[in-house]
Nucleic acid binder design. Structure first.
Lengths: 290, 290
DNA sequence: CGAATCTGTGTAGTAGAACTACACGACGAT
DNA sequence: ATCGTCGTGTAGTTCTACTACACAGATTCG
């Protein structure tokens, strides 16, 4: 599993390619979905080159042959074409926009999955398991992630907070003692307020887990830094995928910690989930999300 | 694009299959990743049947042949194997759990994408464009979606609210007038409090958009019902994907509405995003998410 | 400035793959 | 008990991916 999609790979290398291979690249980029169902001869024909050229194109990309290339391309497409390759146009109908946004989200989460540093995640889990209490801090979209993490508090098994107010965040950080953990969330990793809160928490003796979109001040500051790589939000139309990646990470952390806490803890959770069904009219207690 | 993954398709049909085809199904289900790189002869061999049987298996599933089947399988796998087919075990290492949760999330969002009723989304956009103000209501995980929607309020271009408190939600609903829109979010679609709020909003003359995980009381009540199909959360280990699907939908609605509001509105948005950079130490104004 | 080499491309051939027509055996029905 | 049908494997065919080789153009070195 590489951390780059086939489409990215082609785009990146096409200027280093030989002229005729570049023709193939153009043909693939023009209509990737069609290429998936083509034979080698078909692609060679539409690109206006010979079959061996297509073959060289595939091997040059690192694939063992045309078959492997086609398979890889199919997988990249399944996960969705990022908006980098199909931007959202103002006059798109709603269906097209929905499709593009879902595609972009999926491919972006796919990148996060591929580039995720599992060792860092494991370290974070270890830290959280040892924690006596956990504080989630973040502003804006990252604040949403913090609030969502709080909803999973029962899974973490220790008292959790996620103050929405910045001052309250700072107060919580300042009152931290050893054994407490602060999870600082910021996609940019350079939101000054969050950095200040984090610094204060460290000084107070708390362990800091940073959740960020890339290296930066926040990651440097933290004891454990989890980087969530997504496709950058360059355009105004571009949906903000970073918060989704954050939520998935919350899922991972919460379940991993819950599992580590042992079967007794899980049993209590199950009972709690069943009890939640009183808020619903039907007696269907198997569902667990409102 | 069908709304079922290949793995689901096989699982669903395997009891209606002929004995030898069932062998093939078992072989595929046992190690789908390996099958992707097999030849027809290879699969026939590991399943203990002849090549034409494999062929019949593929055509029986609705594929034109083995090639098409293998391609479809590859795409299903790229999107991730849902936990239905690879459950989370308590003694999984963190890396495995992270992988499975990401896989499950991706495949679940893929299902949402495939089964999304774009006509309903278009209708919702239409309703929102006409709105004089919008209120988002929901509790628990769905409350998170409401809060996230509020973060996109600027995109909607009209005053938005998303009260966290249930009573405040009810009050907002009761004070609605014609032209106002209530977006009611509930994955189960049967959370009684949310139903009450929604009913009250309708009586007050507001248009109601329901965001729910399936048909039910809430969907019946709404003027426009958007159903987000995900993989059901049956297990306690299972991550809760419904909120992610909700967030993506929020993205879709927000961008679609913003685009519909015209270029002047978009220009104001761009300026606002640039202004947001003052909260960051660096002068990097191109990023837009904290 | 010319010859040699090397890079880039297409041609021809081959092994193997996917797909198809057919035949055999087993089971159920009349 | 025999006929028919359903399920399965065998043998053959076509088309596919892949490979070895040869030619043309550019480049470089004598």
């Amino acid at each position: 599993m590489t951390d780059e999609s086939v489409l990215e790979l082609i785009t990146g290398r096409q200027d280093r390619m030989r002229p005729s291979e570049r023709k193939v690249a153009a043909a693939v980029l023009a209509d990737p979905a069609a290429v998936v169902h083509m034979s080698m001869a078909g692609l060679a024909d539409t690109a206006g080159v010979s079959e061996p050229t297509v073959m060289r194109f595939c091997t040059g990309l690192g694939f063992s042959g045309f078959q492997a290339f086609r398979l890889g391309l199919a997988q990249s497409l399944a996960v969705g074409i990022p908006v980098t390759h199909s931007a959202i146009e103002p006059d798109d109908p709603v269906e097209a926009m929905a499709g593009k946004i879902f595609d972009h989200t999926l491919s972006s989460l796919d990148r996060t999955r591929r580039s995720l540093d599992t060792a860092a995640v494991a370290a974070a889990v270890e830290t959280l398991v040892r924690a006596t209490s956990v504080h989630f801090v973040g502003l804006g979209a990252s604040g949403i992630i913090a609030q969502d993490a709080l909803q999973h508090a029962v899974l973490f098994g220790v008292p959790c907070t996620a103050p929405v107010d910045l001052h309250q965040q700072y107060m919580a950080a300042a009152m931290c003692g050893p054994g407490e953990v602060v999870v600082a969330i910021s996609n940019t990793g350079r939101t000054t307020s969050v950095l200040e809160v984090t610094e204060r928490a460290k000084r107070a003796g708390a362990a800091v887990i940073a959740v960020t979109g890339g290296p930066g001040p926040l990651a440097d500051l933290a004891d454990v830094a989890i980087v969530l790589r997504t496709f950058e939000d360059t355009d105004i139309y571009t949906p903000t995928v970073s918060r989704l990646a954050g939520l998935v990470l919350v899922d991972v952390l919460a379940t991993a910690v819950a599992v580590r806490r042992g079967p007794a803890h899980l049993e209590r959770l199950r009972e709690m989930k069943e009890a939640l069904s009183v808020f619903r009219g039907s007696a269907d207690g198997s569902r667990n999300v409102t």
